[in-house]
Amino acid sequence: MQSTSEQLRTSRTSDESEPVVLVVGGSQGIGRSIGLAYARRGARVVAVARTASVLASLAEDAAAAGLTMGTLAADISEDGAPEQVVDAVVDTHGRLDNVVYAAATTRRKPSLTVPPSDFVDGLHVNATAAFLTAQAAARRMVDTGGGSIVTIGSLNGMRGMAGTAMYSAAKGALVSMARCLAVEWAPLGVRVNVIVPGFIETEAPGKAFRDPTIRAEMLARIPMGSFGTPDDIAEAAYFLGSPSARYVTGQTLVIDGGAAA
């Protein structure tokens, strides 16, 4: 990963005391907003995603706002990728303080006909790679006094929804996994939490948000009467990774305007 290390070196800042933050799935949507929220506060951020061109656009937008954003093009679901990504960040910045895992795939299909490969591959991206990233990060965090790991869950992991068995199973697994890791890693100084977003409208809205009928149905289920924004999730992610949340671990924070209440 020599080219990756070179790419990350360009993201160094002058203040080496600022926290180092890895955002997996950080090029678009919620992950993008989380990375920018950290960068605005001076953190050394590395955003990871599969598509180099989208990452380049993120870096340009950050620079236009006077921010520095490191990027790394990698498929986190590939064998060995979580360890390689974490090692590249630590090799460049000397430490890793916060990890946010926002990578995901949905593949909504009827459960009677969903191909086994779709189920297995989806679980790998949404849950297995999240664990492997957390594991690799925690091993390095132990050397520098601990850190914070946040995964991005979903309301699908808390209730039944037709055609989403794989996605719901994986997102539900993140909640149980965080509780176990929080208990196991608390003595090591590593905190693990989950954020569960509700109906969040991103810069590239999905089909449901573009369909007037479905959009109205979703909005009717939100007591606060409006969709959330990626920044709503980003501010919570920043809090969970900050010293202000030093006593928070093993928790699931639902941010949905009351939809699941």
Rank of each mutant, 00 (worst) to 15 (best):
M224D: 06
M166V: 08
W185T: 00
P243Y: 10
N156Y: 09
Y167D: 05
V142M: 10
A237D: 05
A220K: 13
A204R: 09
T164V: 12
G189N: 06
M177T: 09
E201M: 10
T202K: 03
V196T: 15
L174C: 06
C180N: 13
G153Q: 08
A137C: 08
M161G: 04
E217T: 14
T151R: 01
R179M: 15
S242G: 08
V192P: 00
V192C: 10
G157W: 05
T144V: 10
P230D: 04
G206P: 00
A220H: 11
G206W: 01
R139W: 03
L181E: 05
T151N: 11
A137S: 14
A165H: 07
G206M: 01
G228T: 10
S244P: 02
A170S: 15
R246Y: 02
R210N: 11
R179A: 12
G146N: 07
R215F: 11
A169D: 06
L188F: 07
V142P: 01
P197S: 01
P230T: 13
C180V: 12
K207Q: 08
R159L: 12
G228N: 00
L240R: 04
G206F: 01
G198F: 02
V175G: 06
V196W: 02
F239T: 08
E184F: 04
L240K: 06
G198L: 13
A170Y: 02
T202A: 08
E201Y: 03
T164Y: 08
G241M: 11
I152C: 02
L174P: 11
G157I: 04
F209K: 08
S226K: 13
R140E: 13
T151H: 04
E201K: 14
T202Q: 03
C180W: 11
W185G: 00
G198Y: 06
Y238W: 15
F199G: 02
K171S: 12
F227T: 03
N156S: 13
L174I: 02
E235F: 07
A138L: 13
R139G: 15
A245T: 00
L240F: 07
M161I: 06
A178V: 00
G160E: 12
R210V: 03
V175L: 13
G172Q: 10
I222T: 00
R179F: 00
E201W: 03
E203I: 00
V142A: 15
A236T: 15
A216C: 10
A173L: 13
E235R: 13
V192L: 07
I149K: 02
I222S: 02
M218S: 03
A245L: 14
T164G: 03
P230M: 11
P197N: 03
M218Y: 13
N193M: 12
A182M: 04
S242P: 01
I149T: 05
T213D: 15
G145H: 09
E217C: 11
A136R: 07
A182Q: 00
F239W: 14
S176M: 12
I222G: 09
E217W: 04
P205M: 09
V196A: 06
A165R: 08
A170R: 10
A245M: 12
I195P: 05
A237I: 02
